[in-house]
Simulated assay, not measured.
Amino acid sequence: MSASTIPIDGPLLPLYHEEFYFDDGNLTLLVEDTLFRVFRSSLTRHSPIWRELFELPHPAGEPMEGSGDEHPLVLYGISKVDFERLLWILYPADFGVCRAHTQDEWTSVLDLSTRWECADIRALAIRELQKLPVSPVDTIILSRRFDISGRWTLAAYAALCQRPDALSLEEASRLGLETMVRVAQLREQIQRGAPGPVRPKHHYQTPTSAAGNRRVGLDPVSSHPLRKPREPGQPLDARPGKPPCQTRGGTYGGLRPKSRQTSIGWSLTYSARMELCRHWQPKQSLMICARAPPLTYGVNICAERP
């Protein structure tokens, strides 16, 4: 007995989706050859496109699209795989855990969320794509397709222009003629010679220790090569032409506070700061803090009135 085929008169019934066909759902959708039954509020809550769709007037006497399996709402031009990945976000199996992990999965979510203007889901997909190791060419293509701008896109252009290897034929065909020409122009400008690193205008001398100064024959207090060495018996850090300042605790050469409470910036060495601490009265608060350049220190003196 030979095998024979059984003719089928009517069309094949669509399949129910094994996960996203809820028995208590109120919206039936037909995507390709699969039926989805979800909750209408899940879509209208995130998408203004879906809200406007259900606000349209419905003809009287006709069944409403999406009301059941016999009258589903057909989504043309939508892949059932992309729609299923979007439902991963709307109906997570585990709270706080995203089932989408790869670049293709998040691209599907980004595609439908951009079409239906789901701003929060679109922002989530962009953030997750930025965490993945996406190639510069794919980043540029995604940015142009879904209108993404910012540092992520600029970094992809910079990496493509600064890499040593030239664009391959496949990459050039994916980027298109206009983008390929712009990238080639930037690469040529970089290869001709980029400006060197910018050097700082001011160079500061690294402070040396007292032991190192003694080895080279310099005084610990007057270690700067332009300063005149201290004479024997001369007060610490005193310089010719600076009258000594008479304070309650003693004389400190060349430094004269103008008031009982003031803030003065001095260029002091370590021994000079210690000398200032010994001469100042205990009731007066002294705070010394280092700041750049290394040989300059800021001294804030707040003297209390007796």
Score class of each variant (00 low, 15 high):
133 P>F: 05
29 L>G: 03
126 I>H: 01
123 A>R: 12
255 L>W: 11
194 A>T: 13
238 A>Y: 08
145 R>E: 03
165 D>V: 05
70 E>Y: 00
131 K>Y: 11
77 G>C: 04
161 C>N: 05
122 R>N: 03
200 P>V: 04
282 P>W: 10
214 R>D: 05
13 L>A: 14
86 L>Q: 01
101 H>M: 04
301 I>N: 06
85 R>Q: 09
300 N>P: 10
180 M>N: 04
186 L>V: 14
273 R>N: 04
281 Q>F: 12
86 L>N: 00
184 A>K: 06
57 P>A: 02
92 P>A: 08
293 P>S: 02
277 C>W: 03
83 F>R: 07
22 F>A: 06
60 A>P: 04
125 A>D: 01
236 L>I: 13
274 M>K: 08
29 L>T: 06
202 H>F: 15
123 A>P: 04
294 P>M: 05
232 P>W: 08
124 L>S: 08
262 T>H: 12
152 W>C: 07
172 A>D: 14
259 S>R: 08
127 R>M: 15
200 P>T: 02
72 P>G: 01
93 A>S: 12
185 Q>C: 11
228 K>W: 12
203 H>E: 14
229 P>Q: 08
6 I>L: 09
302 C>R: 14
213 N>P: 00
119 A>Y: 13
270 Y>V: 15
229 P>D: 12
8 I>Y: 06
73 L>N: 03
144 R>S: 04
250 G>D: 01
280 W>T: 09
247 T>D: 09
125 A>W: 01
205 Q>K: 11
77 G>I: 02
214 R>G: 03
86 L>Y: 01
127 R>Y: 14
150 G>L: 11
81 V>H: 15
176 G>H: 03
273 R>I: 05
45 R>Y: 13
295 L>Q: 00
252 Y>V: 10
83 F>H: 10
79 S>I: 09
174 R>M: 10
3 A>N: 11
74 V>L: 11
46 H>E: 08
218 L>G: 00
174 R>P: 01
106 W>A: 00
249 G>A: 13
137 V>C: 07
72 P>H: 02
290 A>F: 08
59 P>W: 06
4 S>V: 07
215 R>Y: 02
88 W>V: 03
222 S>D: 07
190 I>E: 07
187 R>C: 07
59 P>C: 08
76 Y>C: 12
55 E>G: 13
5 T>I: 14
108 S>N: 01
116 W>R: 09
206 T>P: 14
101 H>T: 06
119 A>D: 10
150 G>C: 09
58 H>I: 13
139 T>W: 02
196 G>L: 03
114 T>S: 13
79 S>E: 13
290 A>R: 11
57 P>S: 07
186 L>F: 09
229 P>T: 14
168 S>T: 15
167 L>T: 02
8 I>F: 14
176 G>K: 04
